[in-house]
Amino acid sequence: MRLLLVEDNRELADWLGKTLRQANYVVDIVHDGEDVEHALAAGDHALVILDLALPRMGGLEVLRMLRARGNRVPVIVLTANASLDGRVKGLNEGADDYLAKPFQIEELEARIRAQLRRANDRTAPVVSCGDLVFDTNTRLFSLAGETLALTPREHAVLEQLMVKAGRTVSKAALSAAIYDFETDADPSAIEIYVHRVRKKLEGSRVRIVTLRGLGYLLRHED
């Protein structure tokens, strides 16, 4: 899952990014309200974490602009202002959730998971495809009860396919979901990651099917 973190305090942004990457999220960081729209257009972000006190363009303004353009990406607002008025205003402008600083990272992660569940029309925290199970709380894959060891990229590929299980995911969409801005996106490398994941899924009934010219599809065979 690729997240966009908008926070102007660089240090907090860096460490939040690191912590979220620990949990196998792909995280892009921008420090400025005006960069948000551009960043969202360039990447396929599943969720935005938005600080309200931003230079040049305030968080509420960013939110208003996104919603005005019909962007429905889930947004969790972060703010140092925990007043009722501030919270109501943020939610009214189209925020999906609201978290006041200082917060515990566990709470932020739980709220991210809740928003992603809702965005993907799920209610259970566990997603499965045959023997393959993805626990969104621990963010770990397991195959037939055994935890699957995956690199961050492999994890991102498999998570994307899992979330869209049963539907075709194009190479471009996969690429947009697994690369952050700091990496040179290399679409041909996707094939390598898919290949490695396939190897790790060997021996189970779960298959990654290649549809030439269309993309990939995760499914399990009976």
Partner: peptide, 19 residues
């Protein structure tokens, strides 16, 4: 307000180190 962001940073760094 001044203290909120630094506190969030502290807590994030501590969580990261723990994990």
């Amino acid at each position: 307000h001044q203290l909120r962001t630094p506190l969030a940073l502290l807590s994030t760094q501590a969580s990261y180190a723990l994990r």
